[in-house]
Every structure is written in C-alpha cells, then in structure tokens.
Design a binder for these strands. Structure first.
Lengths: 357, 357
DNA sequence: TTGAAAGCGATACCAA
DNA sequence: TTGGTATCGCTTTCAA
C-alpha cells in the first residue's frame, strides 16, 4: 500500500480549508487513495485504451467508488480541448413543434454520451445572436439552430456572423432549411409538402382559401405559403387572403377573428401555416359560432400530437419532427452525414370534409 | 506597443500546428495582440471589478473583438471552481407538462446568465440514476429533477444516492414535491387541488367516477387520486374504479377503452390524472361513439394549453407550470429561497356540464 | 505498464 | 493599476 504521504497536504484539503466546505473529490484524491499515480488513475477511469494492470485497475476503481468520484467535465474539456456538448437553440421549448425536435436531439445526444444545452430565442433576432455568442463560449461540438430564420432581416446577420465565427473554429452548425447560413442543413421540404396539401384540398373541392401566415420573410412560412398556393391554384383554387402574424396559437385566433369580421363565406378553407396556428383559428371559429368542417374547413401543417385531439381532427401535413431533431443531431456529429429531405405526408382528417359531398 | 515576442511561438499556434486547424483564440492571444499581460486581459474581459486603465481596457477590447474572442467556459469553470450551469431532468421534453416547466427554468437561467443542460429520463429509474451521475460531472450549480418520483421504488434509491452525493459537495438539488429526496422542493399541492376538483365535481351532481391513474406509488398520481377521492366522497360521490397506466396519452386512451369494454354508465365522470391522459380518454370515448360531456363527463389536471382546444373544452385544475419551473430555478440559486405552494385553481369547462341540468 | 511533468485556458493572489 | 505566476482538475506525451 504505497501510502506514506499523510503529512503532505493534498490539494483538495487545502481547498477545503479555504472554502470551509467539502469539495468534490478529484482524480488526485482517488490516485492518492489508491496509491497510484495521477496518470494511472486517469487511464483507468477516463482513458480510452486499456493498458493498466488488473490489480491497479481494481484499486483505482475501488477508491473512486468509495470516494464517490465523478470526473470533472469542465476540466476534462479544457485538457482535451473539446467539450461533450451540443447546443440547441429553439424559439420556444413549450411549443410542441420545438419540444418534439428537442426530444429527437436529446435522443441522439444520449446515444453518443453527449450533453444537450438548451436556449430559448423567443424569436428575437438580437437575443438569438447574443445567445449564439454565449453558447460559443462552451465550445460545443455542434450548434443546432431550430428557430426559424427570416429571409434577410439585417438583425439576422448578427446571428449569421456569430455562426460563421463558431464554424471557423471547428464547430459544426446545423440549421433547418437553407437560410443562407453556415454549415449543414436538415431539410424539411415545406414547399413540396404544402403543395401536396394544396392539391389535395383542391381535389376535395375547395376553391377559396384564407391563409394565416407568419410575417413575410420568415422562411418556413413563405415556403409553406408558396407551396400551398401553387398546389391549390394548380387544382383550380385561389388563396384570396393572406393574414400575417406569428407562429403562436393566439396569433391564429386573433387573425381568424379578424378575418371573420371582414366576412368568410361558407365553404372557405382556412390554411394555418402550422397546426398550432390552425388550432388557434379553429377556436376563433367556434367562438364565432361557425362550424369547423362543414361550414369553414381548416387545415394546418406539422401534425403535432394535439392535431388529432381537436374536434374535428385537423387535416395537416405530417412532419416527422422528432426524427428531424435526430437528424439534426446526426448532422452535428457524423463526418459524412447526408440526408435527403425527410418525407412529408398529407394527412386528411375531418376538418376538411370536402365540398361536394 | 509592447510587442516584440514575434519569435516566440504562442501556445495556440503550437496547437494549430498540431491539429492542423484553427482553434478558437485564447485569452493569451488577446493579451499578446493587445500588448498587455494575461492578467490584465482577464480583468477587462471577464473580471468583475473594474480596475484597469481606460487605454488598456480599450486596447484589450479591441483586440478581443478583432480576434473574435469568446472566453472558454470550461476553462473558466475549472479555474473558478464553479460552472455556470443548471441541469434539468425531465421525463419527456415533448410532453407539454415538462415543456412548460422547462420554459420556466430556461427563463430564470437566462436572467442569471446561466446555461441549462437538459436530459431525458424516459421515466426509467435506472436511466435516471445514470443521468444524475453523468450530470454530476458537470458540477452544475443546481440540479432540477422534474421527473415524477415514486414512493419507494428501490431502483429509485440509486437516484437518491446520486442526488445525496451531489448535494454533499455543494450542489443544490430541487425536486418536485417532498419525495423524501435531498434538497429543496417546489410544492405543487396536488392533493388540495384534486380535492377541490372532486368537490366541484360532486357539486355538479356527479356521483360515480372512474379514475385513470399512473402506477401505484407514483407520488403525483397518488396525491391527486387521494385528493380527488376525498373531495368527491365528501360531496357524496364515489370513485368506483381506478385504472392504472402511465402519464401518456396512449395510456389514457387504452385504459378508457378497457373501461368502456367493461361498461361505463351514462353520467359517469372520468378523472384523468393529467390533462394528457384525460385527452387520451376523450379520444377513446369518441372512438367508441360516446359523447364527452352529456354522456360521459371528463376532467383532468394541469391545464396544459391543449385542454382548451379539445371539444368539449376540458375541466381541469390549473397548475402554473411555467411559474413552477421558474420557482424551481430560483430554488436553485437563491440562498434564502422560500416559496409557499403555488395556488391551484379549478377550471370548470364544458367537458363536465353537470348532471342535473 | 507506470509515473513525472508539461500542457489546456483561464483565475486570482501577491509583489512591484 | 499592472504583471508574474501558482493553481484549478485533468490529459497526454515522454522516459524509465
């Protein structure tokens, strides 16, 4: 038992004295307890390749267990020059859209033993840039930006600059949809999905639609709107009105109420740019005493879980959000990641019963 | 311009050569660029108290900006002995219950300039313990455990042990509800809320209820069930059946279907232990051709956003989840945090129209 | 295989 | 105020 160092103050004892509180045991403590060198302790506890004698290995493991040792991730990160974290930026974690994406990211990270750090942009470009900058400090392996990009908001360029800087030093950036930004993109083919939806709706006999969208320039919204328009018009329909707000339920409700005030003919189809917005519109319709479905039809986009819980169930385009999140994660760690746009699928439900029944 | 060190290799240049790729600029680089000492650069960039001459401060800031310097958080953490992170454990981030809690935590963390690390337990006790242990390695300032605790599952003790260990070395643990665990607790008075709900339901004339709960021993579920029972019975009602599953929508639907197969009288009240479960039950009722409300009434708990979107809107108990998350965060950083249980409120909606109309 | 020692990027004490 | 330097906890060469 190669002890015999009792007289020497261990670093952590010194620290204890200073802070007057127990600090977590260090590798040093473990090594001393096991009577081996720091290097050896490191090798058995955290080193990858095994090249430590069995007897030593046991001693070290035992010491670590009895001390309740856990490697200090920060210290490892500074020593290794790389930290085991993936940063995820979402607009709003309480929104099911982002919740689902986050769950996919978390699943992937977990598989790789990585930690997910999460931050909320609240859809504020300035805030977003600030957050990316702060996150850079963590030197994450990857940074996933799931908040929706705008087309060319100048305030956005601050974010892009930060992302570029991040990427310049080896960080991997993953965004959703091209957006002109740095790095890899996981593609949700919003345009094609919306086009298919528009076509289906025209086939059901709808000819006049009101779209409830986000602000002009918000890519996701623009793509979905353009796609829907193309498909719907190809089928003989026309989008007669486009109302603009944001992606929240309240926005959908408010805009729908406004549209109703201006008059909405029976047989009109309301296209919410996301399910959440569509569901907001549905509630406004109900409040106004209009029947969703037979009177005014509604469709959305995303297929979030609650789209099947509303009555009538919401017609929408299924986006495999959790898988999207998972792919975003993969894009962050796979050297040769490549992923064709994930398949989107129109799901027709009772909120669009069709016009010529 | 105190340069003149051109011949000396800077540490990061050495590193560049080794890795053959640009690494993020270090404080060292900034100091050299600005012609000041490491210490001075540190003081202006990251130090708290200002005691640097204006001219130096400017030089350093300029150098930092031109280099795109961001302090390495890991290095700061190891040097300072404390890392700016809060760890959050949730069962399922795609569940609105946890999504809302997470948003509250994120808001608080943001206010304090802390980073939130998130991990998913999937309601698996063994996994949970593993995760807590891994998270310990980050030496977070606080650890918020939002997954539901069981009464005395032995597998749970592993988690408790890890939490204790974490707390022993100065980490702050926050859990939801007593649970016998280490640390602080933010209280959701499930029992009282459910009791009030039970009383209200009895007042509406309901006399027979079916409860759809989670497994026995899951604290949240047990408390809500006991409370509901007490209130409902006090009002003259009786819970005739308790079905057990988990907190997911599918569980609510499956259990409801099963109950229907065994027969459910008109006028029965179904109490879902959470809104998500109740909404699952509603869809099963609909699928079975039963009318929610007039025929079979349904109530839930939590008041998640979609509870107003379903038809009929769901009667429930409002839990200020985002605020709960915020409080959990505060508990993690405030030295003298103290918070009485947050007020819960019964919200009667159309899913329980009352029996004697 | 093992251990000594030189980093990693930063903080903070201490003397100037 | 400033700069030199010990230190934080850990990894990883390099000799032995």
């Amino acid at each position: 038992m190669l002890r015999g160092m009792e007289l020497q103050e261990s670093p952590s004892r010194t620290r204890q004295a200073r802070h007057a509180r127990a600090a977590a045991p260090t590798l040093h403590d473990v090594a001393r307890e096991a009577g081996v060198s720091l290097a050896t302790a490191s090798r058995v506890l955290n080193g990858s390749e095994r090249k430590v004698a069995e007897s030593y290995r046991e001693r070290v493991e035992q010491a670590a267990a009895s001390l309740g040792y856990t490697a200090n991730v920060s210290a490892q990160a500074t020593a290794r020059g790389t930290s085991p974290v993936i940063a995820l930026l979402v607009a709003d974690i309480a929104d099911p859209y982002f919740g689902l994406i986050a769950s996919g990211v978390a699943r992937g990270a977990d598989e790789q033993g990585l930690v997910v750090t999460i931050a909320i942009t609240e859809r504020d470009p300035a805030r977003e840039a600030r957050i990316v900058r702060a996150l850079r400090g963590q030197r994450p392996q990857g940074l996933i930006l799931a908040a929706s990009r705008t087309q060319e908001d100048p305030a956005d360029s601050a974010t892009v600059a930060e992302l570029t800087e991040f990427a310049r030093f080896g960080g991997r950036v993953v965004t959703f949809g091209e957006g002109g930004a740095e790095g890899r993109h996981v593609e949700i083919d919003n345009r094609a999905g919306a086009e298919a939806l528009g076509r289906s709706m025209a086939e059901l006999g709808y000819r006049s639609a009101v779209a409830i969208a986000a602000a002009e320039g918000v890519r996701t919204s623009d793509d979905r709107l353009a796609g829907f328009r193309a498909g719907f018009e190809a089928g003989g329909g026309a989008v007669h009105r486009v109302l603009r707000g944001d992606f929240r339920k309240e926005s959908g409700a408010a805009l729908m109420t406004q549209a109703l005030a201006e008059g909405v003919e029976p047989g009109t189809l309301v296209f919410g740019l996301s399910d959440v917005v569509a569901i907001g519109a549905m509630s406004a319709l109900r409040d106004a005493g209009r029947a969703v479905g037979a009177d005014v039809a509604v469709c959305g986009f995303d297929d979030v879980p609650s789209s099947v819980d509303v009555t009538p169930a919401l017609t929408t385009v299924r986006v495999p959000l959790s898988e999207v999140g998972y792919q975003a994660f993969r894009a962050t760690v796979d050297a040769d990641w490549e992923q064709p746009p994930l398949p989107l699928e129109v799901v027709v439900r009772d909120s669009t019963p069709g016009l010529r029944r």
